[in-house]
Design a binder for these strands. Structure first.
Length: 586
RNA sequence: GGCCCCGUAGCUCAACUGGAUAGAGCAAUUGACUUCUAAUCAAUAGGUUGCAGGUUCGAGUCCUGCCGGGGUCGCCA
C-alpha cells in the first residue's frame, strides 16, 4: 500500500487520456511528474506538479493544462475535491471511503507495512565503525555506529541484501604498540614492578586482564623470547581481546555486524591480496612509477623527493596521485584499502557504503577513485561523513584527553543515558550536521529527548488495548479482523489526519533509503507520535472521539484498528532506528 | 594556501532533494490532569534562510564570487 504511488498511477493515466499528450508522446518526459503531500494540509491530501512540469514541452501554460488534467481526474470517485492552485499545482482531497480503504490495507499488511522491494534483493555492503582494535570504543565512534547500523536496517527494510561489515585495522604500527603494551602487562602479571607506563604505549587498565591471561597461558615462557618471537603470539591474543571488548561495546549500543574483516588477511601470505589488487590496477592502466610534489602549505623537513609506485587517481577524479609502496618496500595503508575494496567487489557487491567520521573527509575522493578504477565504473561507492559530536554536561563542554587515558568511552555514555537515548539522539540530526550531545538534557529533562516522546506514543497504543481488554472482556481482541472493522467507521477529520500520516510511511522509508538519510525515519516517527498524541487529547475534550466506547463495540473495534496501525508503524520505525518499542513507560 | 562540511526564529534543528504563505522542539506567555498513563495536548509570539550576483514558470535548496565557523593535508594509521 503506497498511496502516493497509487495516485501517481492515476495522474499518469489521466495524462495519457489527454489529446495533446498523445500527439507529442515521444517528446515528453513524464519522469519529473510527482505526487506528494502538499506542504499545507488545508490544500488537500495529495498534490501533483504535472501541469507545471509538462506545460513548457507542450507549449501551453500551466494553469490551463492543470484545468484539463483535473477535468479528467475529477471523475475519480476516490477524489472528493480537486482544485488548481498557485502556479499550477493540482490539489486533491480524498474521500473518507478512500482513507478507510487505505487504513484497512495498512492493518492488513501488519508489520510488513512500509517495506518495499526497491532494493530488488541487490547485494549492498555497509561498512561502519571500523575502530582500531587498540582499546574500548570512544564516544566519538557512537555516531557512525548508530548511523551505519540504522542505515543498514533501513536498506534491508526496502529489500536490499545488506551485509553489515567492520574493517579491523589490525595490521599497522599501532598494533605493535598494542602488543608491547600488553607485553608490559604480562610482565606485570608475572610479578614484575611496572612503575609508569612509558609514553608511546597504551596506558589503559583494560590491558591488564590480557596480560594476566597471557601469564596464565604461557607462564614465564614468553619472557625469555626475543620480541620477534613473542610479538606474533601477543599480537593475536591482544587483537582478539580488544575485539571482544569492542563487540561488547557495540552490543551495548545494539549495533551488530555480520562480517569482521581483518586487514591482516590482506597482508597474509606475503601480501597476496594486496599484490593481486595492485596487479589488477596495473593491468587496468592506473599504476605508474613517478614522483609526487611535496604537500602544499609547509613542506615537511624530512621530505624525500624520490620515485615510487603510484596510483594514478587523478585520472579518476582525485586531486593527487597516491603512493602504494613505502620506501622500505612495504605497502601503504592505502594499498590495503585498495585491496580491501577489490575484495569487496570480487565478493559481488555493486554498491558499497562507507560510514566515516568527519576527520576522514580527505579520504572520500581517493576512495571514490579506487572504486571507479577497480570496478571500471561498475560499482557505486557512497561515503557518508558523520560530523563531530561535542559532549556537554549541563551546558559545559566535556574535556577529553586521549593521552592521559581519561577519554569518555562509548560504554560510559550508554551506561549513563541508555542505548535507546543515544541511538535516537544520534539519528535525530542529519549526519552532515555537527551534533551537541548533552548528558544533562538527555537524562534529566526527558522532554528534550524525542525518543521518549515516540516510545510514549507506542506505549499509549498498548495502554488502549489493555483498557479495551477490560471493557470488552467478552471479545478476543487478538482475533478481531480490524482491517474489516474500519469500513464506514473512521470518519472524523482528526482520525483521517492520523491515517494520512501513516500513509506517508512507505514514501518516507523509500526516500530515506534512496538518499541514505536514516534521520528521516527519526523525524517521521516524531511526526506520527505527535499526530497520535494530538488525537488522543481530542478524546479528552470530546468523549465521542475516544477509541473505546463501551456502548458502540463496532466503532470501538474500528478505532482499535487505527491504534493498532499506529503501533505497527511506530514499532517498525523504532526497530529501524535500533531502539526498543516498550509497551509501557515506567 | 588546496580540498571537504556547515551558516535557516533568542537556542537546538527540519524542510519530502527545484515547489505553494520556510516548519518543529526548547526558552517566554496563556489554558487543559476525577484522564483510553499530563513523559501529553491546545493557543499566542518569534524570519531580509550569512552577503552579492546568476540560472527559470519557481531557489533555503543548483552555479559563481565574497564573509564567517569547523574539519583535513604526509611513505602516519
Amino acid at each position: 500500500m503506497n498511496l502516493f504511488k497509487d495516485f501517481e498511477g492515476r495522474v499518469l493515466s489521466a495524462l495519457e487520456a489527454l489529446e495533446q499528450i498523445q500527439e507529442k508522446k515521444d517528446g515528453i518526459n513524464l519522469s519529473r511528474v510527482s505526487v506528494e503531500p502538499p506542504r499545507d494540509p488545508s490544500h488537500g491530501d495529495v498534490a501533483t506538479n504535472a501541469a507545471m512540469v509538462l506545460a513548457k514541452p507542450l507549449g501551453t501554460n500551466p494553469r490551463a493544462l492543470a484545468d484539463e488534467i483535473s477535468n479528467v481526474l475529477e471523475k475519480d470517485a476516490d477524489i472528493e475535491r480537486i482544485s488548481v492552485a498557485g502556479p499550477g499545482f493540482i490539489n486533491m482531497k480524498l474521500s473518507s471511503t478512500y482513507w478507510q480503504k487505505t487504513l484497512a490495507a495498512i492493518i492488513a499488511e501488519g508489520e510488513a507495512y512500509g517495506r518495499s522491494g526497491i532494493g530488488g534483493g541487490q547485494k549492498i555492503n555497509v561498512e561502519y565503525v571500523s575502530a582500531n582494535p587498540t582499546g574500548p570504543m570512544h564516544v566519538g565512534h557512537c555516531r557512525g555506529a548508530v548511523v551505519g547500523d540504522s542505515l543498514a536496517n533501513l536498506l534491508s527494510f526496502v529489500g536490499f541484501d545488506v551485509t553489515k561489515e567492520y574493517y579491523i585495522n589490525d595490521a599497522g604500527a599501532q598494533i605493535d604498540v598494542l602488543a608491547r603494551s600488553v607485553f608490559l602487562r604480562y610482565r606485570e602479571a608475572l610479578g614484575e614492578a611496572i612503575d609508569e607506563i612509558p609514553s608511546g604505549l597504551y596506558p589503559g587498565d583494560y590491558l591488564k586482564p590480557v596480560g594476566s591471561a597471557l601469564a596464565e597461558e604461557f607462564g614465564t615462557r614468553l619472557r625469555g623470547m626475543p620480541e620477534g618471537e613473542w610479538m606474533p603470539i601477543v599480537k593475536d591474543r591482544a587483537i582478539d581481546a580488544m575485539m571482544d571488548i569492542i563487540r561488547q561495546d557495540l552490543a551495548a549500543l545494539n549495533v551488530t555486524h555480520e562480517i569482521f574483516y581483518s586487514e591482516r588477511k590482506l597482508h597474509a601470505d606475503n601480501a597476496k591480496a594486496i599484490r593481486e589488487a595492485i596487479n589488477d590496477l596495473t593491468f587496468k592502466g592506473h599504476v605508474y612509477k613517478g614522483k609526487l610534489p611535496p604537500p602544499k602549505g609547509q613542506k615537511p623537513e624530512d621530505w624525500e623527493d624520490r620515485e615510487q609506485t603510484l596510483f594514478k587517481s587523478t585520472d579518476v577524479g582525485d586531486d593527487i596521485d597516491r603512493p602504494l609502496i613505502k620506501s622500505d618496500g612495504s605497502y601503504t595503508y592505502f594499498a590495503a584499502d585498495v585491496a580491501y575494496f577489490h575484495d569487496k567487489f570480487e565478493r559481488g557487491y555493486k554498491e558499497m557504503i562507507y560510514v566515516l567520521g568527519a576527520d576522514h573527509g580527505g579520504y572520500v575522493k581517493r576512495m571514490e577513485a579506487v572504486a571507479k578504477a577497480v570496478s571500471e565504473g561498475e560499482a557505486k561507492l557512497t561515503v557518508l561523513l558523520c560530523q563531530l559530536v561535542k559532549l556537554f554536561r549541563g551546558g559545559e563542554p566535556v574535556r577529553m584527553s586521549k593521552r592521559s587515558g581519561d577519554f569518555v568511552t562509548l560504554r560510559d555514555v550508554v551506561n549513563e543515558v541508555g542505548s535507546d537515548s543515544v541511538r535516537f539522539m544520534m539519528l535525530y540530526r542529519k549526519n552532515s550536521e555537527p551534533l551537541d550531545f548533552d548528558f544533562a538534557k538527555v537524562t534529566e529533562q526527558s522532554k528534550d529527548n524525542p525518543v521518549f516522546y515516540v516510545q510514549y506514543a507506542h506505549a499509549r497504543c498498548h495502554s488502549v488495548f489493555r483498557q479495551a481488554a477490560e471493557v470488552f472482556a467478552d471479545v478476543d481482541l487478538e482475533s478481531v479482523d480490524y482491517s474489516d472493522a474500519v469500513e464506514d467507521m473512521i470518519t472524523d477529520e482528526s482520525e483521517i489526519q492520523l491515517v494520512a500520516k501513516l500513509a506517508e510511511f512507505p514514501r518516507i522509508v523509500e526516500s530515506a533509503a534512496a538518499a541514505h538519510e536514516p534521520h528521516k525515519i527519526a523525524f517521521y516517527l516524531y511526526d506520527v507520535a505527535s499526530a497520535f498524541h494530538a488525537h488522543w487529547n481530542r478524546g479528552k475534550e470530546t468523549a465521542e472521539l475516544r477509541f473505546i466506547n463501551n456502548t458502540k463495540p463496532k466503532l470501538s473495534m474500528a478505532r482499535l484498528g487505527l491504534v493498532r496501525a499506529v503501533a505497527a508503524v511506530l514499532k517498525s520505525g523504532l526497530s529501524i532506528a535500533g531502539t526498543s518499542a516498550p509497551v509501557e513507560m515506567r
